[in-house]
Design a protein around this nucleic acid. Structure first.
Lengths: 207, 207
DNA sequence: GTCTATACTGAGATAGAC
DNA sequence: GTCTATCTCAGTATAGAC
């Protein structure tokens, strides 16, 4: 065998992107990859760790690009706040770029979100990136209390997760005329999130 | 046994709200409920159908209340467009009300979203409600093309899903000082979504 | 119509031989 | 590094008692 580990990774990526994580059994993966079941546990430890390595390989490049763009926009702002639209751009454009070149990446990410695998596997790969973006956003939106900014970051992540998700459960319900392409959806998302982030702070109510 | 079916439902609700759907085995449920394994399949057919009935019981009341509120706001508008904030209010206030009285309902819904069980089980219970809200929103936001409104509805659902999710994977990453209470989070969500929905239409780019 | 006992299939994980 | 054999536990299906 040339490279058992990489063959497992490649096959897993394809099958999980197509069918989802839960629906893709290790026995299915090893069958198509032509390797032994125990080899998966030898190289990765568990099915979840296999997914973890897959995400790591795919997400690292995007996050590096995001941080580089954010650095550039911050330098351009010369110490002042970075406009919200620029922050959104730094976050989403690298994703659009990769997604347009490699649709499988988008489908895989969508699967992760759709199956709720963020908490255990995905979150840690995005932690440093998100923390950095939050720091920049805090200065772009000085009218927002910290707690409200945190909430809005959650909303942002949720909207993105759902938008990236390939199999959108409400698509036909909402009457989407045709499956909009990824780039178009992401641009709409950036506009939507910019509008939401710039909304006035929620008034405190005591009732 | 007094009522086997309801005991199964009650125990399942509690366990799934606490541990999640995938992590709650039927054998765990029947152990705590004191019933036989096959009784579950007799009454519900499958584990997924059990979940389906659970969601149905919980969601019907909320959706009825939502539609009633929307009807009232539409009547108040007297044929004109209903303000976006009113539409958000009709959608979220019934949820806030139920969630404040019965926190377990919120945790269960959060689990559904977190585990990506919308597509198969949850979506159909919300379909008529969502379609109705979309129709009203379309007239509240006449500057938006239909395709863009559909996208924004997706973003809205995604943001809500993630916000309702009890175990928020990015909470500590983002540095949320303390677990904000449900009512407060939902009010922030309404403000955020109103801002996003009212954003200008995304300019068409051809590149 | 309700429920019990039991068996079946497929999943992920593991120990140990080579 | 790799593979065979096996373990445990999951959801499911069925036969039959009451």
């Amino acid at each position: 065998m040339i490279d058992t580990k990489q063959r497992i990774l490649d096959t897993a990526e394809r099958l999980i992107a197509d069918r989802g994580y839960a629906a893709t059994s290790l026995r299915h993966i090893i069958g198509e990859a032509g390797v032994n079941l125990a080899a998966v546990h030898y190289h990765f430890g568990s099915k979840e760790d296999l997914l973890d390595e897959l995400i790591l390989q795919k997400a690292t490049g995007v996050n590096t690009e995001r941080l580089a763009l954010l650095d550039r926009f911050e330098a351009e702002a010369g110490g002042g706040p970075v406009p919200v639209e620029k922050v959104m751009s730094a976050f989403f454009e690298p994703m659009i770029e990769v997604g347009s070149r490699n649709p499988q990446f988008v489908r895989l990410m969508g699967r992760m979100y759709a199956e709720g695998l963020l908490a255990a596997v995905v979150a840690k790969h995005f932690q440093p990136t998100l923390a950095r973006f939050l720091d920049v956003l805090r200065r772009s939106l000085p009218h927002l209390p910290d707690a409200e900014l945190s909430s809005r970051a959650q909303f942002m992540i949720g909207a993105m997760s759902h938008a990236v998700c390939g199999q959108r459960p409400f698509s036909q319900l909402i009457g989407e005329p045709q499956p909009a392409d990824f780039r178009c959806t992401m641009r709409r998302l950036m506009v939507f999130l910019s509008g939401g982030l710039k909304a006035p702070a929620t008034p405190e109510v005591h009732q």
